[in-house]
Write a protein that binds this DNA or RNA. Structure first.
Lengths: 354, 354
DNA sequence: CTGAAAGCGCTTACAG
DNA sequence: CTGAAAGCGCTTACAG
């Protein structure tokens, strides 16, 4: 435990060298007006020469700033606890940067309701945040919204899904196509020559769920590239409940007895697992998405073999930290951070944190 | 961007309420002597009541402390770049906490040389660090060493491998047994009834490598529990070079033509891959450890199917952050953090960061 | 356009 | 055992 030396450093030293007061130095550092070009240049030269970096702690302390981070994400619903993971990551980050004067405020919207997105977004803007973390689940609505944010020049980070061509500060989330390919590779291990594969998209408003399609494309691409001859059949189910899903699934399985593997393109895989379990179809390999309680349960029974997961908790954590690092000039923020594509099985789920 | 209020807070408010000077408050906060029991109790009561938490930034600023973190880990060697990952994670963390007055100093030892560990450890102690992050690769030597550290009452975090019953602040690393079980599960997918499996331990000084044994145990346990009848054969190779390994491997494969899968208990899996590739044995499923350049190359060619990896970079990062969080009282530090057990394949390695 | 002073919430000698 | 003062490296009014 050593002490720093006693030579003049920082603004004082700059002021001394430039023969001005530290007030003027401060103005230059923060690009405030009211400094002559001449003094400004002189001071900037000295800053350059000293490789001066302001002491963030001192500045924070002196300015007594409170930064408000707004978080705009889907609410945790009864149907899926997926969003509890990003939320936990966000909360952990919030806890860690609280002492630096950052307050995180939450605005939740309902995934069933575009108007709830609007309401939450508007309320958020009312409160004049200094930075925004959002999951742009509704593409159209989010685009309109980000335009407002851009006018306000607020740093904006996307998690979970990206908004094409919207210039946010950063995107942190999955690359869907490749995760589909991975799912296909995992499926292929247990497959024999004549076996067929069923790909299932389950969602209300399937036409809006282009991200499911991306995964499906990646999945099919793997089989095309690999030269494996297994046929891939697609089943779209425009409903997330058990009964309609069962009514759609059973005929498909009866029609194609050669189906030995099912790939569900999202976290609803537990619904399929429930149906398969009910009908004692343990001969079918089931692969799906996300580290949800219900999914883990079927992983343990063996009805689901692989879950693919892209670190939702870490997405939330990194999202907040990206804003923090940007605003506090800790380090540069990556334009895109694609999360690793994790494979969860019966034998490693216990060490996965979501 | 709001400002904090102007009411008296912190030490000043405590001093006002207790009718003492802030100097005395400071003494109580830091448990320094020279305060009467009475004042002490009064102040402590107020601190309790206010739920007062010192402003770490102000205290850091005022004390101008520089904290030295010492890192004692194996050097990156020609043979394996494994340790470059923890090192990168450590550097990233170091960069992030530099502005809080933390300086990280590195002490590298050679995995082939216990004396190099001694030298590095001694040098480290000479420099009087305030906290220590270490990988206790040599168990005996590390135990002796941690006793000295305990006398100095320095916070100590272990990464990569644990030291049984040594009371460090925290352990961050893998749980080996379970990763062996996972390897077995992955192997089992592609296995037929009569197929046999070869488990290979490659290391010099195998008798010291109890961690390889742990993985092997987990691996075998999976097959016992699962009721799969596949025979598991073990091959120990007390050398890490290609030629001796080849001389040991080929006879084993000839003796047991039914071997259709090989599990290598550490990162030397690329050596086995090289031999198998040379002899065109693409029929054998190969599973091993660690996200090394050489291993990834064979993952891409398909000679290796699965790599198991336990986030070495994150271990380094979290290790430094654990010391930081402890010393700066950001949050409590977990006694043990077992890393997730990641599965790397040809289809997801590109998004893995090590 | 610039400077001098007060202050952020602490810590550190120093004096008594 | 306790207090008053100076200072950490900045920012913020205020005055000129």
């Amino acid at each position: 435990m050593k002490k720093t030396g006693t030579e003049l450093t920082g603004v004082k030293e700059i002021a001394r060298r430039a023969n001005v007061s530290i007030g003027t130095v401060d103005r230059v550092i923060h690009n405030r007006k009211g400094v002559s070009e001449e003094t400004k240049n002189k001071i900037n030269a000295i800053i350059e020469e000293m490789d001066f970096r302001p002491n963030k702690m001192a500045s924070l302390l002196a300015s007594r700033k409170i930064l408000n981070f707004a978080v705009l994400i889907p609410a945790v619903s009864d149907e899926t606890d997926y969003w509890s993971y990003p939320l936990n990551g966000i909360k952990q980050a919030a806890e860690e940067i609280r002492q630096f004067g950052v307050i995180v405020q939450y605005y939740f919207y309902n995934l069933d309701s575009k108007s709830s997105f609007h309401t939450a977004a508007e309320e958020m803007l009312q409160n004049e945040p200094d930075a925004i973390l959002m999951a742009p689940s509704f593409v159209e609505e989010s685009i309109g919204f980000t335009q407002k944010i851009r006018e306000l020049e607020l740093p904006l980070v996307f998690i979970n899904s990206d908004l094409p061509d919207q210039p946010g500060l950063s995107y942190i989330g999955p690359e869907l196509y490749q995760s589909g390919k991975l799912a296909a590779q995992l499926t292929s291990f247990a497959l024999q020559k004549p076996d067929k594969i069923l790909t299932i998209n389950i969602a209300t408003g399937l036409e809006n769920n282009h991200h499911l399609l991306r995964k499906e494309q990646g999945f099919k691409r793997f089989f095309e590239d690999s030269g494996l001859a297994n046929e891939v059949i697609t089943l779209n189910i425009n409903d997330t409940k058990l009964d309609p899903t069962e009514k759609a699934l059973l005929p498909a399985l009866t029609a194609e007895p050669a189906i030995k593997a099912i790939f569900v393109t999202n976290s609803r895989v537990n619904v399929i697992a429930e149906i398969l379990a009910k009908h004692k179809r343990t001969d079918i390999l089931l692969v799906g998405y996300d580290f949800l309680k219900k999914n883990i349960d079927y992983l343990i029974t063996g009805q689901i073999t692989f879950l693919i997961c892209q670190r939702p908790k870490e997405q939330g954590y990194l999202g907040v930290m990206a804003l923090y690092k940007h605003l506090f000039k800790i380090s540069e923020v990556e334009k895109s951070t694609y999360m690793p594509i994790d494979i969860i099985t019966k034998e490693n789920y216990m060490f996965y944190n979501g």
